[in-house]
Design a protein around this nucleic acid. Structure first.
Length: 474
RNA sequence: GGUCCGGUAGCUCAGUUGGAUAGAGCAUCAGCCUUCUAAGCUGAGGGUCAUUGGUUCGAAUCCAAUCCGGAUCACCA
């Protein structure tokens, strides 16, 4: 099982989430290509203090506004209130410190923060009004996410909701207490001591009895196993959570959960801006929806400038722009080693030349153009000698199965991206030097037609493993 | 401070089970469209592989130290 995406329902998706989504989807496909049975799953972090924050802000500032009334996409609408909460929180903290409170005290006593904490307790108690507001606002976010997921091609076989799994987590905490894995402090909070394993003491339940982040993860780990008896549980989660995942696995082992040793954290690096890390709360994020729109727009400009598809219908054009725009974006995010952090400079938009998605797509379209005019004839003899550039292509093509296996064993789609680029490069070099249609002999022509078919198949299959479509013409 | 990750061309990245002149793409410069799509092809310039020491016939790759950058160690998620 590959768990990926895992959004919070308090803000829209950004570029970092896109890396996660593309990576998770691609890893799942690569594993399938190696014969594994794969389930794609998603845990929606739909409850918790962060959700309450946007709910509080909506109550305070919205005056009943809705996504419909403001004509805003639902996830963006709710995200605005998450930002408003943090603005108000900062303002209140400043006010309190100005009146003589220490910063630490002010952060705990700010009225909006107290209100959010109270709301979380009310939520866990099942307060009717709180639950109703929660459902309403999450509903808005889901409507927004649905659009984004459809755009970027993310899909899931199973979606889990934290609001369903946290109770199982809390039950496991109870069990752990009786087993002596966890201990309760004087104030009622529950802890696990991992100092013997080189880590720290970690809280698993707050003194007010509400659950923390890791509580639901423990519950989910068990639930996944009980439902599907999975033998490998891959979590596609950012490397900022390395410690958290280490703790999760350790706790699972100490609790004796049946699948503890199958938990694997596919840790990927953050996408950073030249100015540093993206922060939702400070508005320094590259929004996922904006990014998609921009890429398709850039694809349109390039396509129009080249003027090769003037006979396309409006629908065909729209679909082509999406194919190229998304191809450029996915390839860009998947071509580097997932474990490494990467820097994205919004000033320099994603390239369409060189080591890019459109380069590979272009090579494919070029080959299809040849094959529309002529296809190999199985009856005719094939040249039995290979020129250097023909041999180069064949040599590359032969590596495909090994590359797929390698990508699977490393859970690394960049292996595929690099490979597919080199195949395309080899074909283009050949293409500039030799002609297929006007080959020196009929045998040569047959050979080259077959090479073309094989190359186009490898490119198409390889790109599919990255979640990228290839166009017949561009 | 503890733990973990990283530092390769102006920029973004490959290469790290030790092996020949360290590779791409972008950017710069010079060429290539009367024949299958120039989103392409060919070539040039550009590197003390952070630094120092060690192991080795041989180090970008292994070891140690140092410097620089980042993540994390929350009753946030």
């Amino acid at each position: 099982m590959v768990e990926y995406s895992s959004p919070n329902t308090n803000k829209p998706l950004h570029l970092g989430h896109l890396r996660n989504n593309f990576l998770g989807w691609s890893v799942a496909e690569i594993l399938k290509a190696n014969g594994y049975e794969v389930l794609k799953s998603c845990i929606v972090n739909d409850r918790g203090i962060h959700i309450c924050k946007s709910m509080i802000a909506w109550q305070l500032f919205a005056n009943g506004a809705t996504p419909q009334s403001t004509n805003t996409k639902g996830d963006h609408f709710v995200g605005e209130y998450y930002v408003k909460f943090n603005d108000e929180y900062k303002r209140q903290v400043n006010e309190l410190t100005a009146s003589g409170m220490t910063a630490e005290e002010a952060e705990k006593k700010a009225p909006v923060m107290l209100a959010a904490q109270q709301m979380l307790q009310d939520w866990e108690k099942g307060d009717k009004d709180v639950l109703e507001l929660w459902k309403k606002m999450n509903g808005w976010v889901y409507e927004g996410f649905e659009v984004t997921y459809k755009n970027i091609g993310s899909d899931f076989d199973k979606t889990y909701y934290e609001s369903d799994t946290y109770l199982l987590g809390k039950r496991i905490v109870e069990d752990g207490l009786t087993k002596g894995v966890f201990t309760k402090d004087g104030d009622g909070s529950v802890w696990i001591d991992l100092t013997a394993d080189g880590l720290d003491r970690k809280i698993v339940q707050r003194k007010d009895g509400t659950s923390v982040y890791i509580t639901q993860d423990i519950g989910l780990a068990l639930q996944k196993y009980e439902e599907y008896k999975i033998d490998k549980s891959i979590y596609v989660i950012g490397d900022e959570q390395n410690y958290h995942m280490k703790v999760l696995k350790l706790i699972a082992e100490k609790l004796g959960l049946p699948n503890a040793e199958n938990i694997f954290h596919l840790s990927y690096g953050m996408v950073e801006l030249p100015s540093g890390k993206m922060k939702s709360r400070e508005g320094t994020v590259v929004d996922a929806d904006d990014m998609v729109t921009e890429m398709c727009e850039t694809a349109r400009q390039h396509t129009e400038a080249l003027g090769k598809v003037k006979d396309f219908s409006a629908n065909e054009l729209e679909s082509l722009y999406r194919t190229i725009g998304m191809g450029a974006m996915k390839f860009y995010l998947l071509r580097v080693d997932p474990r490494k952090k990467m820097i994205f400079n919004p000033e320099e938009s994603i390239d369409f030349h060189g080591f890019t998605g459109p380069f590979v797509q272009y090579t494919y379209a070029r080959i299809r153009s040849i094959l529309r005019k002529e296809s190999p004839d199985e009856q005719k003899p094939v040249s039995d000698t290979l020129l250097k550039l023909e041999k180069d292509i064949l040599h590359k093509l032969e590596q495909f199965p090994a590359v797929i296996a390698q990508a699977a064993s490393e859970l690394n789609p960049s292996e595929i991206a690099n490979y597919v680029f080199h195949v395309a490069k080899a074909f283009n070099t050949f293409y500039a030097e030799h002609s297929v249609a006007n080959a020196e002999s009929e045998e040569k022509k047959q050979l080259r037609l077959r090479l073309s078919v094989m190359t186009s198949n490898v490119l198409k299959t390889g790109m599919h493993l990255l979640g990228i479509e290839v166009p017949e013409r561009m």
